[in-house]
Amino acid sequence: MNQETYRQSEFARASDPSVAAGSRPNAISDTLKADVRGLSFWYDQFQALKNIDLPIAEKKVTALIGASGCGKSTLLRCFNRMHDLYPGNRYDGEIVLLPENQNIVDKGIDPIRVRLKAGMVFQKPNPFPKSIFENVASGLRVRGIRDRAVIAGRVEEVLREAALWDEVKDRLDQSAYALSGGQQQRLCIARTLAPEPELILLDEPTSALDPIATAKIEELIEKLRDHYAIVIVTHSMQQAARISAYCAFMHLGQLVEFGTNETIFTSPKEKRTQDYITGRFG
């Protein structure tokens, strides 16, 4: 069955209101950092996400997998309110940040503050047209920090955390564009870490990188997961299997199956998950 035939056969199922849009995932044993509850999302009149329920564990990596157009990146961008930048988009349901028990997609919550709590790293490195130092310091200034010594200390701290300090410590005043692609992506990770986020969101962070740079980013993710809740979108099932503790398979805007890495990749419960994992579509 090719992907187009599969999509057509599944479209009726996904569009049928009598079909549940994904059962509530079983409770996980790990402490939760966030809990997605009945989340739906619309691009104007188009419903891109349908009643998503998804627990996000603290200090673990949760991978979002699925074919192109399934809603992975749309869901990821809900966590830091990126969709608010465009008119006509709207949310229904909740993304509850814990332990504050705060619904971060509530209209009364400032999206700027949400973005400081849930930092995003994109598919292609996107450093600001500023120096290496100012790229990292920018989030601190948004938080209202003005003390130069405090900023300098935090910049060094997160550049070390991003495994970049030794490579750039003697050229912090140089343009970020002078760095290689892999270095730029680690700089963007450092920039994300600087405001002390509670969630790190990674949207295919290695898809534009060569294998050596990819390996360095994956090593970095393995270190960061000891301190942060991480949600990553990836098209690479091998990458998801290497670095994630939990995995969520999405299709046509629905969460089809959620479980541990081992369950999803070795004994999925849903036929659609098994078909994707085994390459029947996607």
Score class of each variant (00 low, 15 high):
77 R>C: 03
81 R>D: 13
94 E>Y: 03
66 G>Q: 03
116 L>M: 15
122 F>R: 01
3 Q>Y: 03
190 A>L: 06
147 D>E: 15
173 D>H: 09
231 V>G: 07
220 L>H: 07
75 L>Y: 00
249 F>K: 02
226 D>L: 13
87 P>T: 10
207 S>N: 01
7 R>C: 04
85 L>N: 09
92 D>V: 13
38 G>T: 06
71 G>N: 07
161 E>L: 13
54 L>A: 03
191 R>A: 12
5 T>H: 11
255 L>K: 05
80 N>K: 06
117 K>M: 14
272 R>L: 09
240 A>Y: 02
210 D>P: 03
74 T>C: 06
259 G>E: 12
167 E>Q: 15
211 P>F: 11
197 P>N: 14
202 L>F: 14
131 S>K: 10
60 K>R: 15
123 Q>F: 03
281 F>C: 00
204 E>I: 01
151 I>Q: 11
282 G>E: 04
147 D>K: 13
67 A>F: 00
100 E>F: 02
56 I>G: 01
117 K>Q: 15
38 G>H: 14
222 E>I: 07
126 N>R: 06
100 E>N: 08
217 I>Q: 07
267 S>L: 09
226 D>I: 00
104 I>M: 06
249 F>E: 02
115 R>V: 05
237 M>N: 01
10 E>N: 13
211 P>Q: 08
206 T>R: 00
152 A>H: 10
97 L>V: 04
185 Q>W: 01
250 M>Q: 06
156 E>N: 06
174 Q>H: 15
229 A>F: 07
236 S>D: 15
59 K>W: 01
263 T>K: 14
221 I>C: 06
96 V>T: 09
126 N>W: 03
86 Y>D: 01
108 G>S: 15
192 T>G: 05
82 M>S: 13
140 L>T: 13
73 S>N: 06
216 K>S: 12
243 I>Y: 00
233 V>T: 06
254 Q>R: 15
255 L>H: 07
213 A>S: 15
36 V>K: 09
178 A>F: 11
194 A>I: 07
55 P>D: 09
61 V>F: 08
220 L>V: 12
231 V>H: 09
111 P>H: 13
135 N>K: 05
88 G>N: 12
149 A>C: 03
149 A>Q: 15
26 N>G: 14
22 G>S: 04
68 S>K: 05
165 W>L: 10
208 A>Q: 07
78 C>Q: 12
208 A>R: 11
59 K>I: 02
239 Q>Y: 01
240 A>R: 00
225 R>L: 07
145 I>D: 10
79 F>T: 05
187 L>T: 11
58 E>T: 02
221 I>R: 04
154 R>G: 03
61 V>N: 09
243 I>E: 01
262 E>Y: 08
9 S>T: 08
253 G>S: 10
43 Y>V: 11
80 N>I: 01
67 A>E: 04
8 Q>N: 13
22 G>Q: 05
256 V>Q: 04
147 D>S: 08
153 G>Y: 07
50 K>I: 03
169 K>H: 14
278 T>I: 03
9 S>H: 12
140 L>Y: 10
178 A>D: 14
202 L>H: 00
234 T>C: 03
120 M>A: 10
